[in-house]
Amino acid sequence: MAGVQLEEVRKVYRNGQVAVHGASFEVAEGELMVLVGPSGCGKSTLLRMIAGLEEISAGTLRIGGRVVNDVAPKDRDIAMVFQSYALYPHMTVAENLAFGLKLRGMPRADVERRVAEAAAMLGLEGMLGKRPREMSGGQRQRVALGRALVREPAVFLLDEPLSNLDAKLRHSTRTEIARLHQRLGATMVYVTHDQVEAMTLGQRIVVLDAGRIQQIDTPMALYERPANLFVAGFLGSPAMNVLEGELQAADGLRLVLDGQGDVPLPGADVPDAWLGRRVALGVRPEHLLPAGEGLQARVDVVEPVGSEAFLHLDFGGRPLVSRLPPQKLPEPGAQLRLRADPAHLHFFDPSDGVRLAA
């Protein structure tokens, strides 16, 4: 088990494209750190640089305190799980698990012990004689995890390991990875574009966009205090509602929108310096709820999903979403009054998207 430190790590391709702009963060020993962001944000490139599969253009990478910029992948003491299972189709599960250990010349007794331990941990004991084609996608992904596990590396690297699975298998395998991490106390760096995976798995999350780190924090800190509009919109499903306008205090605090309409903000407390300035107001769907007074919107679509329901609303041509508990729901076309919870409002500078601090 070892920590990973990145100091101003950059990746620039020969055509001049910058894939990663000066990434700096530290993964503590035993921590599960998630790199998350949309396609093309640089998260997999970062992981491949940690693995040694991608050359580092600038900056310093340390694993266990040792600078590894020029160290070959096989000498970094890492194990990687890829998006594709990458199993040998002609080998049994046991042979797939043991293959890397045999290449390293490990004694047969040690190989058998490690394979048996990994199989027991991942529930593969009854499948050791099977070949990959005889297994489901979830079982094959467990074999890929086991192949990394038997290595007993200093750091596990996982590159979107669940993206090929269906929703039910993603959930169960995600739970297995969380349990595995708790049991092993291993250092893991996990890449995903799925914000639900990031929020449920990560002890901390690195949010990336266009090769730049936007924010690093615990899942709930990111959700409750996003540093900018990108993080606010990326984390959370449905995404945060955002309305842009000018804060005014006439007849009570309100956000006066461009064109027409305003959003009353009774009970909200903002610094006097913010009055008269343009802001982007963010409200999570669960904090925009029906009330006797407030903004008036038309219900466009109602999505009941059992434990909750989503109301997709039209507010003067602006889309909004409200998340409600199970209850009697309005019909599409109905007019609804909604109030933003004053204790859960987010204010951002619309010019650069950065969160405004009181």
Rank of each mutant, 00 (worst) to 15 (best):
L6T: 02
K11F: 10
V12N: 11
N15S: 13
A19H: 12
A19W: 09
A23M: 13
F25Q: 07
G30P: 07
M33K: 03
P38D: 05
L46S: 12
R48M: 11
G52E: 01
E55P: 03
G59K: 00
L61D: 03
I63M: 05
A79C: 01
S84N: 15
P89T: 06
A98W: 10
G105D: 14
P107R: 04
A109L: 07
R113Y: 07
A116P: 06
M121G: 00
G126R: 15
M127C: 08
A144T: 10
G146S: 03
R151W: 10
A154D: 13
L157D: 08
L162S: 12
S163D: 00
L169C: 10
H171Y: 14
R174D: 15
R179N: 15
L184P: 08
T187L: 08
V191K: 04
T200E: 07
G202Y: 01
Q215T: 03
Q215A: 06
T218K: 11
E224D: 12
E224C: 04
E224G: 02
A227M: 09
L229P: 06
A250W: 11
A250C: 02
G252W: 06
V256E: 00
L257R: 02
D258T: 12
P264G: 05
P264R: 03
L265T: 05
L265W: 10
A268Q: 08
D269V: 10
V270C: 01
R284L: 03
E286R: 12
E286M: 04
H287A: 07
E293G: 14
E293N: 14
L295G: 00
Q296N: 06
R298S: 15
V299N: 11
V302D: 01
E308I: 10
L311V: 13
G316D: 02
L320Y: 15
R323D: 05
P326A: 11
P330D: 07
P330V: 10
L336D: 10
L338V: 01
H344W: 03
H346T: 05
F347R: 03
P350F: 08
D352I: 04
